[in-house]
Design a protein around this nucleic acid. Sequence first.
DNA 1: CCCATATATTAGTGTATCATGATATGGTTA
DNA 2: TAACCATATCATGATACACTAATATATGGG
Lengths: 112, 112
Amino acid sequence: MYDEWAELWRTLGDPTRLHILSLLGIRDACVCELVELLPISQSAVSQHLRRLKSSGLVRDYRDRTWVFYTLRPDMPGVVATFLKDLPIPPEDAQWLRSHHVVQTCQVPMVDT
Amino acid sequence: MYDEWAELWRTLGDPTRLHILSLLGIRDACVCELVELLPISQSAVSQHLRRLKSSGLVRDYRDRTWVFYTLRPDMPGVVATFLKDLPIPPEDAQWLRSHHVVQTCQVPMVDT
DNA sequence: CCCATATATTAGTGTATCATGATATGGTTA
DNA sequence: TAACCATATCATGATACACTAATATATGGG
């Protein structure tokens, strides 16, 4: 009866995942951008994203070589309410607003 | 920055603790009553209560030989909102409403 | 196909968590 | 104080978690 809620709360119960969710509140981001902003390995970021996805909090879509993650608008209301008030490190917010993927990540070949 | 929230969510991230919180939503209960209602040992119940207490979700007070636990009205609003909608096994709700401690637990000596 | 980049997955390791049983602590009554 | 009950804590084992390093998979362009 409480298992599903418990699993959802445990997904929220990790500082790195909260950090990721707060970043996605600014804008969609691809994995390599999150890796840039978080102090952990790409592998760890990927695993956190898998967990967030399987808990129904984020969705992913592909654009060229990148996989972007985005907050799911249909997440439980109580979680959405919480995320709305979750603080974001100001430098992270600014970084996300001022950078674009192609400036940050290597890209196989972009036409000038 | 996210550590405190993460710890709080991890406290909510256990089915037994959600069960306990839903029970306390009916009325204050002492440890031996919770032990009666939950399928785990008294030791386990006590440890869950300690965690709920240290996360600021419940408070305890003593009445004769019993320690009663109660929901803290000053818990974070988002948690209170969630608990308000948390379902409760009907038989538990009825048990709590129809029983009293002295009917359930052994008591050193009760005057008739 | 071959290579480079982005992402996911696997394996291994240290730590946290949740359960139990045994024991300690504390209050109440005789 | 002694005996009893309620509760808390301790020691331990099984499982879940979060990380890293290494490897696999996918995509896009020569």
